[in-house]
Amino acid sequence: MFLINCPYCGERDQQEFKAGGEAHIERPKQPTELSDDEWAEYLFMRKNIKGVQFERWNHAHGCRKWFNMVRDTSNDEIKAIYKMGEKPPTQ
């Protein structure tokens, strides 16, 4: 059970949060210009990395804010947490 440092509320139990999949996948600005393959790439294709992964999380039972998390999926170490719109940390 993670202890997640919500950027708006501070450290809270994982039970309060909802995971939202891979981060930094921007919705295309002009979907109609995209081929089926390009649209499918946005729509369906997600990474499933063993190691450092960038994820979206939502403080669903708290402030309801979305934020980003860098997590090592092999040992669940949370390496960084930052707000939506902020640049991911370079490591």
Partner: peptide
């Protein structure tokens, strides 16, 4: 509600 909040916060802030 969750879906609307998601789009509002992440795609269309």
């Amino acid at each position: 509600l969750s879906k609307l909040e998601d789009y509002l916060q992440t795609e269309w802030p």
